[in-house]
Structure formats: structure tokens, C-alpha cells
Design a protein around this nucleic acid. Structure first.
Lengths: 145, 145
DNA sequence: CCAGATTGGTTTCATTTGTAACCATTGAAA
DNA sequence: TTTCAATGGTTACAAATGAAACCAATCTGG
């Protein structure tokens, strides 16, 4: 009889792995500032790019627009970002981190980098190269659909 | 100033990749039978192993026990599995697929395998080897914690 | 111009999820 | 044995999520 071995089924393995890594990493921003993942991604996007609209944020960080909307609302409530209405198109707003938001971002960056470094540091050189190129390969496949 | 490039940050890439793959694959079991992911995993676990307890299912498929509990309840409602109380320990139940559950499982297996084959088929040989060994490497890291 | 389609973004509602409390049973220790 | 901790599993409640409806502003074709 034909059987599927779950433990070696790639979609399952990938999901479980990403879930474990993400859960581990989430402790960094959850413990430090009580952020959710969408909020962290929003912070990271704005920190990286300076000023973005909600739509751009969604594209960069692969989030549904409702997630973006709620994350932005929460960061605004904390006064970590401000909205500046566009001059020409009054539907969209340009989002920028405030001084406080930037401070939080600056604090998070080294922690994020350290997390990644530590994680990859437990692999040997060839495994490290493998995960990077394997992920890149699959990303390429999926992006063309 | 120190910046984190989200697009190349491994936890983010992994999560986005797994999410995309999983979302794509979920159409297979969602379209066909209206299953959720926990339900599909439960079906897959029992199909693979024959008889398991809820705890074993949770361990094998990396699901929280409440997810297992609800998935089992739903599959039972569909009469896809039955519970048989343990003789010696009346806290636990042995779960087994019914004929109908097994039929659904048998129908899903080739679809799952085809999905994985097609996905990997779009990679070249070295990328294929890379993703497998990279994932295995990270799994090993995480499993020792 | 202006009627309809599109876009940026928010809100509402139903579903899914996680945490914690819980129940029943078993095990361990005194 | 009797009590207390641990285990298998379910349930209740709150939070996170996604789909779809929605609002306002802009664009487009006649």
C-alpha cells in the first residue's frame, strides 16, 4: 500500500522548520517590546526603507493588507510611527518611524543579526551554503508561479 | 547606521517560503475534501502509522494538543476515524482510520507526492540537494535546542 | 464632464489559534 | 492507603487571522 512519510515530506518539513525558527525568534521582539510578528515586520520595513506606504509595506514583507493596517495602527498608538498624507493622492499615507520607533528599531537590529548568526553558526560551511541556495532556488520557483 | 535587510534575513525568508508552499499545497486537501491543515496532518499520521494516540499524533506532526483534539473530533464527526479506549489506561484512546478515512488517505497520497515531485522538479539537481541538506541541517540544530 | 471601474486603506464578521483552566485517571511518595 | 503530582485529553476564553464588504479618492472610457 502506498504511504506518505510525513517526516520526509518537504512541505511539512519546511513548515515545521520555519515555525520553530520563527517562534524562537519571536521571543526577541515579543520579550523586549511585546510586539507581534506583523508589528515587528512593519518596524523592520520602515527602519530599513525610511518611508513607505501601507501597500509597499505589504509587498515587502508579504503581509495581507489587513495585517499591515492593524500593525500600523498599533505602532501609531505607541507613537512609533507617523502618517503623512500624500500631497497628490489623498488615499495614501507615507509612514515614517518617529524618534522612539527608530530607537526601538536600532535596538532590535543587532539582536536580529545575532540570532541569525547564532543559528547559522551551528551549521558547518556546506550546510550553511546549502540552506541559502536551496531557499533561494525555491523562492525563484514560487515567484514565477 | 546599522540596517537589517529583511529580504535576506533567514527567519523571514524561511517563513515566507514555507507559508507559500504550504498555502499552495493546502489547496490539494482543501479543494478535495475541505480539510484544514491539522485535519490533513491527522489523516496523514494515522494513514502512515495505522493506530496512534492523540499525544503521539501531536508529537509526530508538531501540533499543539488542542489542535489535535479538534482535528480528531472533526474527523470522527465525518466518521473517518474511530477511538478505541485503551484497556489498561483509561485516559488514552487509540485512533484508527475507518474504511472511509483510509479511502480519503489513499486518494491524497499520490496527490501529495505529485505536488512534492513537481515542486522539486523545478529545481536543478544541485538546488534539490541543497534544500534537502540545508533543511536537514537546521532541523538537527533545532532538535537539540 | 460623468458613470463605472480601480486603488489605498479600514472595518466587520466568522474562523483559527494559543493559553490556561479544567476533568478524569494514573503514578509516586509518605 | 491516602495524598499529591503528573499525564491524556477537552473546553472556555481571548487574541490573531482572512475574506469580504466597505469608504473615499482617483482614474478611465465614452
Amino acid at each position: 500500500m502506498d504511504i506518505l512519510e510525513l517526516e520526509s515530506f518537504l512541505p511539512y518539513r519546511l513548515y515545521r522548520l520555519a515555525d520553530a525558527v520563527s517562534r524562537e525568534f519571536s521571543r526577541v521582539y515579543k520579550d523586549r517590546h511585546g510586539l507581534t510578528r506583523p508589528e515587528w515586520r512593519t518596524l523592520a520595513g520602515l527602519g530599513q526603507n525610511g518611508t513607505m506606504t501601507a501597500t509597499e509595506l505589504g509587498e515587502q514583507s508579504a503581509m495581507h493588507k489587513t495585517k499591515v493596517s492593524r500593525a500600523v495602527a498599533e505602532l501609531e498608538r505607541r507613537r512609533w510611527l507617523t502618517r503623512i498624507p500624500d500631497e497628490n493622492d489623498r488615499r495614501l499615507e507615507h509612514l515614517t518611524l518617529t524618534r522612539a520607533g527608530l530607537a526601538a528599531y536600532r535596538e532590535m537590529v543587532p539582536l536580529a543579526k545575532a540570532f541569525e548568526r547564532d543559528l547559522l553558526g551551528e551549521l558547518n560551511a556546506s550546510e550553511r551554503a546549502a540552506i541559502v541556495s536551496g531557499v533561494a532556488g525555491l523562492e525563484a520557483v514560487l515567484s514565477k508561479g
